[in-house]
Simulated assay, not measured.
Amino acid sequence: MGVTRLEIDLKALQHNYTYLRSKLSKNVKMMGVVKAFGYGSDACEVALLLEELGIDYFAVAYAYEGKALRKAGVKSRILVLHPQPDNFHMIIKHCLEPSLYSPRVFKGFSAFAKAQHQQNYPVHLKFNTGLNRLGFWENDTQWILEQLKETHAIKVTSIFSHLAASEDLKEQEFTKNQIARFTKIASTLLNSLDYTPFLHQSNTSAIINYPEAQFDMVRTGIGLYGYGNTPEEDAKLQPVSSLKSVISQIHTIEPGETVGYNRAYKASDYQKTATIPIGHADGISRAYGNGVGYVTIHGKKAPIIGNVCMDMLMVNVTDINCKEGDEVVIFDKHVSAVDVSATIHSISYELLTAVSQRVKRVILR
């Protein structure tokens, strides 16, 4: 196709959705996490297909992400995981559902909903059971119950928490303690309310490793996009995104010549280099430079040489039979984002979500 592009395979998305659904007990709902542009892909295209397939709920990080889904025509319920008071108006205007995770946010949204003449506006209570990032503490439950008795502006739709290490089987004891803590918190609240919010705590890895903790709903993000946090599960999923580019120009350089900014690479002998139109402004970190990372050309690894530039990078293609205009793969179904990101001691999540919005998205239906 001749340009740097991110191909988004909706057939792979459907496969992943079906596979993850097969892991769930009957009547357990599924929430699709489409924050960060759908993990770097295209949140609106992803959400519209998942809605068609029968997803029960969506989750985004921020209100403006939910607004974008609504503008694209997504009608399903949307949980905003990290709402900010400045965006409460946007949340109500677009029928989004906020996570209330602290007394400040609880009181602020409750007051705002009341001022907007809302009745039983759906909210979700987030509890901290060990991740220590966002969430109420267990000893906040009585305060929450007292607050709920004083208002009709909001009504709790769900109670949830987030596991810290469900992918790490060395942390089974910690994870099981988190599940037990959440069960205890939820029981306290459910026993005191005259209605029944639903419960959710599992992420993708927990769907696989802790089927006993599915509760009423599970949340899946990375799994939908083709990664299961273990090689065994990765083999059963299909990567949705493929990042590709082309060779713009090929150079032959002599011994002692240097490549790129700060002359970071020096040739030891006659070498052939290729320049590719993708750089750190497109999501390829400078950390991949100087022989750390690589791209794949005709199935062969071409190490990145010198510093990654803003709009391009250079690779050593001395031992690869290639020409200008040939396709270059950064990651795809065969070149795992897990393996590429591991070269800089990172994770697939970071590489996927780092792909800049200036990179052309190509939807494969």
Rank of each mutant, 00 (worst) to 15 (best):
E97A: 09
K170R: 15
E324Q: 14
S285H: 06
I250E: 03
D311G: 09
L163P: 05
K333Y: 06
Y265A: 02
A153Q: 03
S158R: 05
Q172K: 15
D9Q: 10
R104W: 13
H162I: 14
T196S: 11
A68M: 14
R77D: 10
L53N: 04
F127K: 04
V74C: 02
L169K: 15
W137H: 13
S25C: 11
G54E: 12
I297N: 09
W137R: 12
Q172E: 15
V28Q: 03
K333F: 12
T258M: 09
E7Y: 13
I284R: 00
N177A: 14
G226W: 05
I344R: 02
V46K: 06
T353F: 04
N27G: 15
Y225M: 13
L189Y: 00
I250N: 01
L169C: 12
P103S: 12
A115S: 15
Y39R: 03
R5T: 12
M31D: 05
V295A: 02
I55D: 09
E7T: 14
E167L: 08
R358D: 13
M312Q: 11
I297S: 01
H334R: 10
M217H: 02
L125H: 03
E324Y: 10
E146C: 09
L48A: 09
A342S: 14
Q214R: 07
L49E: 02
M31F: 05
N27V: 07
L13M: 05
L169M: 15
Q271T: 13
D86Q: 13
L364G: 10
K236L: 08
S356C: 08
A186S: 02
V246Y: 14
R181T: 04
G108C: 07
N16Y: 03
A59F: 07
N128M: 00
T318F: 08
Y101N: 03
S248A: 11
N290P: 00
M1E: 13
A267H: 09
E324R: 11
N290Q: 08
S336W: 07
Q271P: 12
L125I: 11
Q238S: 15
R21F: 06
V317K: 08
T196G: 00
L79H: 10
R104I: 12
E327P: 09
G108D: 11
E150N: 11
Q172N: 15
T141H: 10
I247T: 07
Y19Q: 01
S285W: 06
A111T: 14
V246D: 06
L243P: 03
T230H: 07
K176R: 15
I78D: 01
E173I: 13
N87P: 09
F37V: 13
S348M: 13
G38L: 03
F88K: 00
V315L: 00
D9P: 10
K126D: 09
L125W: 03
S268Y: 10
K236I: 04
E324S: 09
P239F: 02
Q178T: 03
L199M: 04
I284W: 07
G293Q: 00
K170W: 08
E324F: 07
S25Q: 13
K184N: 12
